[in-house]
């Protein structure tokens, strides 16, 4: 049993990473879509998206996870891993919506005007002028969101997903070394969060527009 612990922990870590890698892009796709609707979608859609954002950000992620988990598994038969990851993605979409909306607004209407002035359609202006700038702007906030999702992935342990927190619980229960088990989990999260932040710092530096420093306070 003892000799299996390292592989056990590593498999937990792999699942933690996998949950994050499902939830984060999913939150991004939903968040981006909803943000575009929020900003350019007209009164009705905009209001719906505002409500969506308020609800997603006003309810604890753990509570939302449970609600979504039971809804999802009531509709289709998914493993806890998929149901949990997708639910986490939906939770994140509310926050990513706000991040992207902030960036869209701060790129501003002047850029839109300029694009329309050279004959671009609204959709084209968003696609070629607004988004390329906005997506660069969101990187610092998005980096923060990535580590939030990584840390929130610990919550899916409550749904029985065998990620690192769940594995540590099981190891603790079988070896009676809870402190060691959870400190190990903490250390792994810390390293993962650290690496995520460094990676996204790097991405931000690489994608910066030369000579254009836009200090956004998203």
């Amino acid at each position: 049993m003892l000799s299996q612990i390292p592989t056990y922990i590593l498999s937990g870590m792999a699942i933690t990473i996998a949950v994050t890698l499902v939830a984060l892009p999913m939150g991004f796709v939903l968040g981006l879509t909803f943000a575009l609707l929020r900003v350019y979608g007209g009164k009705f859609l905009s209001a719906i998206m505002a409500a969506y954002s308020t609800i997603m950000r006003g309810v604890p992620p753990l509570v939302l996870l449970f609600v979504l988990y039971f809804i999802i598994s009531g509709v289709i038969n998914l493993t806890p891993f998929w149901a949990g990851s997708l639910a986490l993605g939906v939770v994140s979409s509310g926050y990513q919506l706000e991040i992207i909306r902030g960036a869209l607004c701060s790129v501003g209407s002047t850029q839109m005007t300029a694009a329309r002035a050279i004959g671009m359609s609204r959709a084209k202006a968003v696609r070629y002028i607004i988004l390329p700038q906005a997506l660069r702007l969101i990187i610092p906030s998005w980096s923060n969101e990535a580590s939030v999702v990584l840390k929130d992935s610990s919550l899916v342990s409550a749904l029985g997903v065998a990620e690192i927190t769940r594995k540590s619980q099981l190891i603790g229960a079988s070896t009676y070394k809870f402190l060691l088990a959870f400190l190990t989990a903490a250390l792994i999260y810390f390293i993962l969060v650290f690496l995520t932040n460094r990676l996204l710092d790097y991405v931000e530096r690489k994608t910066r527009i030369p000579g254009f420093s836009h200090h956004s306070t998203l």
């Binding site: 580590s147 927190t165 619980q169 070394k177 809870f178 959870f182 989990a185 903490a186």
Partner: peptide
């Protein structure tokens, strides 16, 4: 350390882990 790890794991360390000490 406290910003870089999940609150849930911190809670588990304190509730389940500290009794080891």
């Amino acid at each position: 350390l406290f910003r870089g790890t999940p609150a849930l794991v911190q809670l588990f360390v304190i509730y389940y882990g500290l009794p080891d000490m």
